[in-house]
C-alpha cells in the first residue's frame, strides 16, 4: 500500500497523537507547517549575488550540464541558477569561486571566439566544455586549470540542484519517502535477482 504525501502527513499526525498524550497540538502544528510549505510556489527570481550577466551565464551552463531530454527537464528547470546564486550570497568563498570563475570563462571565450560565453554560438560553448572535460580527464589542466576547477563547481552544484528537485528525483525513479503498512520487495525485482544470480553462478 502506498499513499500520497498528504496522507503521509495525516497518518503521521494521527500516529503521533496516539503515541503519547500531550503531543497532539505540537503534531498538528508541524503538519500544518508542512502542508503550508508544500503550497509555497517560487515566483520570479531576483538574483541576490550574481549580476544579470553572471546569472545568465550560470543558467546557460546549467542547461548544458543537465539538458532537457525525454527523461526530464534541465538544470534551469530544476532551479540550479537560483541554488548557486543563493549559496554564493551566503558564503564568501563560493562567491569568489563563481565571480573569478565567470571572469575566467568570459576571458577564455573572448580569446577563443571573440565573445562572452553566452554571446557565442552553442558549438563554441560545448567546444569549451569539451576542452575542460578533456583537460580534467588528462589530469593536468595546463592553462585551462582554473577553468577545470570552476567547471567542477558548476557541474557539481548543477547536478545536485537537479537531482534534489522533483524532476530530477522523478528522472532517476526514486519511489520512496512514503508511509507503508508493510514492506515488500516486489516480485519482478526478486525474479530479476534470481536471474542475475544464476548468470553470476551464485
Amino acid at each position: 500500500m502506498s499513499l500520497s504525501r498528504r496522507d503521509v502527513l495525516r497518518q503521521l499526525a494521527l500516529a503521533a497523537t496516539s503515541a503519547a498524550g500531550g503531543f497532539n497540538l505540537e503534531a498538528a502544528k508541524v503538519v500544518h507547517a508542512f502542508v503550508a510549505g508544500e503550497h509555497a510556489q517560487p515566483g520570479g527570481y531576483a538574483p541576490r549575488f550574481l549580476t544579470a550577466h553572471e546569472f545568465a551565464t550560470v543558467a546557460r551552463l546549467a542547461e548544458l550540464v543537465v539538458p532537457a531530454d525525454g527523461g526530464g527537464g534541465s538544470g534551469v528547470d530544476a532551479g540550479a541558477p537560483e541554488f548557486i546564486d543563493l549559496l554564493c550570497s551566503e558564503n564568501e568563498r563560493l562567491a569568489e569561486i563563481y565571480r573569478e570563475g565567470l571572469v575566467w570563462l568570459d576571458g577564455a571565450m573572448g580569446r577563443r571566439a571573440g565573445g562572452t560565453f553566452v554571446g557565442v554560438p552553442v558549438e563554441r560553448q560545448t567546444a569549451m566544455l569539451d576542452a575542460l572535460v578533456d583537460a580534467e580527464r588528462a589530469g593536468s589542466g595546463g592553462d585551462l586549470e582554473a577553468g577545470v576547477r570552476f567547471f567542477g563547481w558548476v557541474r557539481r552544484m548543477t547536478v545536485d540542484a537537479y537531482y534534489t528537485s522533483p524532476i530530477g528525483i522523478r528522472d532517476v525513479g526514486y519511489q520512496g519517502n512514503r508511509v507503508l503498512s508493510a514492506y515488500e520487495t516486489p516480485r519482478p525485482a526478486v525474479e530479476f535477482i534470481d536471474r542475475v544470480a544464476a548468470d553470476l553462478g551464485l
Binding site: 550540464v65 543537465v66 539538458p67 569539451d130 547536478v159 528522472d171 532517476v172
Partner: peptide
C-alpha cells in the same frame, strides 16, 4: 550523483 557527473562529463551522457 557526483560520481556520474565526473564519469560522464556533462550533458545528455551525464543524465
Amino acid at each position: 550523483f557526483g560520481r556520474s557527473a565526473r564519469a560522464a562529463g556533462y550533458g545528455a551522457a551525464l543524465k
